Simulated scan of single mutants.
Amino acid sequence: MAQPPPHPELTPQFCFNTTVLKDFLRISRASIDDSITQNLNALLTPSTAGFDPASTSSRNPRASYTKRIPPSSCNSFKTQVLFPSWQSRSNVLNYCASVATSPDPEDPESPLREVENEKDRKRIVDERLDPYSARFFPREARTEMLAAVVRQERGVEDIVRARSWKVVGERCGEDWRDWEQAMSDWQKAKKSKIPFV
């Protein structure tokens, strides 16, 4: 069974380096969510039932998922692998969102942006002579760029989790909860030290 990558040290520098941030999220998703079918298949132990020679007498056009994964194995996978991985990514995104909404006195491009803004205020625009002269594209602050990355990654996270939860439901037995409710129940069970079901 795959294990999620280790939780990174959360610092503002980690968040502002969006390449590293995206790499952590990509590797975490690849090891757990993108390979969810393989991870769930690893929970099955087909040798326990023994080999049935009649199974080779006919060809089935499509593999069927009639074999359900035992509930204990499913719960173990959810509580030890899937939900901790999701929680780790949520923690990273929440931390980086808080960094993005905090003031950034150490922004290296702040003086340059101030100079550009001052030049723009002093600029005289005559659109009759040059209709494109009014265009001005100010530099974004790194907190604004980080906020955009966090918003985008949260959207991706919602899609990935919904897809993974659907596969888990198909293989482990349908759960009446959506992934958000199941994750919330797991967090409550973890805090109160009661078994998650």
Rank of each mutant, 00 (worst) to 15 (best):
A162R: 06
L43H: 05
F83W: 04
G173I: 06
K190L: 14
P12I: 03
V160F: 00
C74D: 03
D178E: 04
A148Q: 10
N94Q: 10
S72M: 14
A100V: 05
R113Q: 07
P61I: 11
Q187D: 05
K190N: 09
L21Y: 01
L129F: 11
L93I: 02
Q152Y: 09
K193A: 06
Q87L: 15
K122G: 12
S57Y: 09
R59M: 14
K166F: 07
I69S: 00
K78H: 07
T143V: 12
A141H: 06
S110Y: 14
S35C: 15
A148E: 13
N41Q: 08
A134W: 12
T48N: 14
R142Y: 10
I124K: 15
A147R: 03
S90N: 10
P4C: 14
L129H: 15
I69K: 02
F83E: 00
P195L: 01
S72T: 07
F137Y: 13
V160D: 00
Q152G: 09
P6G: 08
Q87M: 11
S35T: 11
T45P: 10
S47Y: 08
S110P: 10
V167K: 08
N41C: 04
Q80H: 10
K67Y: 08
E170T: 07
V92W: 01
P131W: 00
S73V: 08
W165I: 04
F77Y: 07
L25A: 01
I27L: 11
V156W: 12
W186G: 03
S58Q: 07
T18I: 09
L25N: 01
E116Y: 07
P4S: 11
E9K: 14
E118G: 14
D104A: 02
I36C: 02
Y95W: 06
Q80D: 14
Q181M: 15
M1R: 13
V197G: 12
S88L: 04
P138C: 00
W186A: 07
I69F: 00
L40V: 06
R113M: 02
R26M: 12
W179C: 01
L40N: 08
V150M: 08
F137L: 13
A141Q: 14
K22I: 08
K188D: 11
F24W: 04
T56G: 13
P46S: 05
D178R: 00
H7I: 15
L93Y: 02
D178N: 04
M145L: 12
S85H: 04
A182T: 03
P4I: 09
